[in-house]
Simulated assay, not measured.
Amino acid sequence: MGRAAAYALVTALVLFGVGFLVRSRWDPLIDLDDGVITRLTDVTRDHPGFRDALLTWQELTRPVYLHVVGTLACLLVWWRTGMRTRAWWAFATLMLSWSVGLGAKYVFQRARPVVEDPVSQAPGYSFPSGHAVNSAAWVTVLVVLAWPIVRARAGRVAMVAVAAAVVLVTAFDRMFLGVHYPSDVTVGVVTGTGLVLASYAGYTGWNPADPQPADDPDVDAGDRSTHPHPEEP
């Protein structure tokens, strides 16, 4: 549980620390954000095909779609492997990350980037990026969920590489479309990943890999052997 608290503390410090700088309009951060968005949207504006690809990715990675797929993955793992508590952990963590991302937007209430000739528009507040929070949480949950199932080293490496690529493409998609600042997506990725790490650390603390049998004289060794151990994290 100590690791869970540490991950949660670091995540909160990043979220609220950068959020404070955003709310106070700290000049170095604001200047960096504005400069990057101006340069990236200039690139998008000059390449219509690139813009179309970005808009397609934006639609595919909408949080509601990610969480529908994530929920189906949890159900599949539950059904095919019997890892019920792990599937419940994954589903609950996905819902937690979605809620935290939405709630943080209303706490900080940062306006979307203002671009002279916008290449895309999005409703709601800007900090942190909902796409970034949810994509980072989504891929991290799915990697952790599938880790005991994918036993080959090459498969695990490929799984992590694809997960990292999804997060990076989503983060740059938000900036090239001019709907989020670099600080929005950076904090979003840290928040989504940090929430999952904190949640998983708490889960492994609650559900240890090598549980010890209770010292109960009313339960003999034969009875204990008939009860399955909690599933491994």
Rank of each mutant, 00 (worst) to 15 (best):
A209T: 12
S129T: 09
A171P: 09
S120P: 06
V43H: 06
F108I: 06
D184I: 00
T56G: 08
F108A: 12
V64I: 04
L29Q: 13
W206Q: 08
L177P: 04
A201F: 05
G19P: 10
A6K: 10
V77F: 11
S99R: 00
E231V: 07
A12L: 11
T38Q: 13
G124R: 06
D33F: 06
V36E: 06
V114W: 13
V167H: 02
F172M: 02
E116L: 12
L145Q: 09
G192T: 03
V36W: 03
V189S: 05
A73I: 01
L142V: 01
A6W: 03
H67A: 06
H67F: 09
P148I: 10
R3Y: 11
T44G: 11
V69A: 14
T85Y: 01
G202K: 02
A136F: 02
D184T: 11
E231N: 09
A163C: 01
P48N: 13
T81N: 11
A198Y: 06
A53R: 08
V10M: 12
A111E: 15
T191Q: 07
L13Q: 04
Q212T: 13
L9D: 02
V43I: 11
L96S: 04
S24V: 07
V14C: 15
T140M: 05
S99P: 00
R174G: 12
R174P: 03
T186K: 06
T170D: 10
D117T: 13
D27F: 13
G202E: 00
D223G: 12
D34N: 12
V185Y: 13
L60S: 03
A146W: 03
P113I: 07
A122R: 04
R110G: 13
F176W: 10
S126K: 03
H180R: 07
E232P: 14
G35T: 11
V68W: 01
A158K: 07
A137E: 01
V150Y: 08
D42T: 14
T226R: 15
A90M: 03
A12W: 03
H180Q: 01
H47V: 15
P213K: 10
A163E: 02
R174E: 05
C74N: 04
H131Q: 04
A122I: 03
V133Y: 02
T56W: 14
P230D: 13
A146I: 01
D31Q: 15
A161W: 00
A111S: 15
T193P: 02
V64R: 14
L94M: 12
V167Y: 00
G19D: 07
V68G: 08
S183Q: 14
L29R: 06
H180L: 05
H229C: 08
R86A: 15
V144G: 09
D46P: 05
V167Q: 00
D184Q: 01
M83R: 15
A122D: 06
L177I: 09
Y125P: 10
G130H: 02
H227C: 15
L32D: 06
D218F: 12
